[in-house]
Design a protein around this nucleic acid. Structure first.
Lengths: 195, 195, 195, 195
DNA sequence: AATGAATGAGATTTCATTCAT
DNA sequence: CATGAATGAAATCTCATTCAT
């Protein structure tokens, strides 16, 4: 049982790395197999096909990620503080585990366009955590009541995601992400505040 | 000469549409040919290969886009107004010409990772227009002097781009982009302002 | 147009030969391609997949065969004579064109069991030609009225087919099929006759 | 020892069922294992490989079948009666034990073409039982002396086999096989009789 | 210049078979 | 003896690219 889980995990971790480096379409299943240290065929014992591997990878990792982010929402802090922590956590997770970052980059949203019959529910959940914080903030008076929650949950995610991407593409210097986080959080909180 | 250019343009326009709908890797050269109303082989008279078509497409369209955005920077208005206009223009262009929007979606950044030997200079130029506005704003006192230009040129682009993506993926209601623009511009300007 | 038809025919003829020699499942698409003198991929320009090649092959060849056999039914001769001619024609066709014989052998009926969604209508038509002759013979008094048409259309086909198979598997001596035909026709006609 | 034999028998019975339903090539070894209630690997403790399983299956079952049919030949009855009994027995066995029927269907003759180095001696023996009856009949004057024994042993088997196949493929109604047998036996005996 | 049939390299996927437990 | 996870050879099929017309 544990053995089996290990192998599945092994393949997922390998896939994250390989897909992130080469892109889903240019990566070969054989590349993932080699990276995972298993035979090509082994992958098909755990995943229906290459697409399923990508989807499973998302689901698995997003599960973990969502759990981490959801802890923020329930804390007894102000919505503005929650947004600050959310942004910091986003970059912390990326800094701590590049593979996690790569999950967000590799075909993350594109996939929902090109993989048949896959609607990326986890991604929607992720956006909604931001949305929840914003809504809460409007109620609490931390944020202007005239802002459109949907607009800003998307905009905030876009800003975070693009910064992460550029950081990964560059030689990603130490500590830079923390600065990104602080600057960005401060600016968004200020921008969204009433008066 | 003009005829030739017409056919090349025809293929590029078709490629933008097809790549945007299906993604670069899932789209077939034959799909582009059909959309362009030419034979498969004809594409190879104008482009070295499929990668080259993507790159050419990007170069050609970004040229146009950059010209449009550069007009803003030289206008005799405040940096804050420039940022506002930039954001509005971004969504106006997308609204007016969906193909332009699609250029930003089509593997825009993925391509830079997976196409060998292609560094997307146009994209960097695009980011730098925002950077220029920010720098100018810091000098003029419209924006805080402690903000990192690089951080926010990326963050602003990310926000714009993600909103555009989601708008395209949804049933893109009329006028919504204008609202996005106004809200976003207001919030960024407020967030970046000193005091 | 003619060129294209030629290539399709070429592939079908090659497939008949290869499938007959090796069996459908042990034959590789590459074997058919080599035999046809085309590239592997070319086969997929004319046929959806390997199964489709087998089905198309049947349909095409059975069309020809059915036309030949149908001429017998309309002739102004007695049902007994028709049965005689049917049996002779069956072996003549096999003798004249081994490939035709092979169509009847290769997975002919098995295929209907294992190919998804394919009901071999042509084969049913073929059996029904025999059935028609038998029914006519019962009316005309050439054959006993108590015989079950269905039973004997199947039995006669089975006898013909098995003889053909064994003849093909053996070193198929000259003239033997004609003797088979005469003996078999005589015996069936005698066996089915009233009194 | 008995246990081992049981497991081997179990696998053979499962293989008969599975090969008959799916065909030898489309059936997976794993399907046979599941049907037999053993692990995939277990099959290889009793059979060298998939081909060997088919051959063993055939040898084993044909042994039984031949024994049953051989009892007819030694009975003190006329050759015509022997032929009648043979035909009835064929369908009785099929009716009583569908698996036996399936042995005749499963790639019965195909196998002899496509399995390397396997000449189906049992099948030849089976045909020869019919041949023996025919020869005996010619001597006894039950059958015409001018008939070719080889021709009719094949033709009779073909008729029997095809009827069985169609019966299995259809919804195989009760009692129909007995009728087939009676009609067929009567007709062949009549057809083969002198004058 | 334009075509589109043909190519064939290369990728995904299957499954008979093995072997450590 | 029995298992079944793992293997990896081999087959099907796709599609970017070429080239004769």
């Amino acid at each position: 049982m544990r053995k089996k889980d290990n192998k599945k995990t092994q393949i997922i971790e390998a896939a994250i790395k390989v897909f992130a480096h080469k892109g889903f379409y240019t990566a070969k299943v054989a590349d993932v197999a080699r990276e995972a240290g298993v035979a090509d065929g082994t992958i098909y014992l755990y995943f229906k096909n290459k697409d399923d591997l990508l989807i499973s990878l998302f689901e698995t990792k997003m599960e973990e990620i969502l759990n981490r982010f959801n802890t923020i929402v329930v804390q007894p802090i102000t919505p503005a503080e929650k947004l600050d922590r959310f942004i910091h956590l986003h970059f912390e997770l990326i800094d701590a585990d590049h593979n996690l970052a790569e999950v967000f980059q590799v075909e993350l949203r594109q996939s929902s366009k090109f993989l048949k019959d896959y609607h990326n529910e986890r991604f929607i959940e992720f956006l909604n955590i931001i949305g929840q914080i914003l809504t809460e903030g409007k109620v609490a008076g931390d944020f202007r009541s005239d802002i459109n929650t949907t607009t800003f949950k998307i905009a905030i995610f876009g800003a975070l995601d693009e910064l992460a991407r550029q950081w990964i593409l560059s030689d990603h210097p130490q500590h830079q992400l923390k600065e990104y986080a602080s600057e960005l959080a401060k600016t968004f909180i200020k921008g969204l505040s009433p008066e």
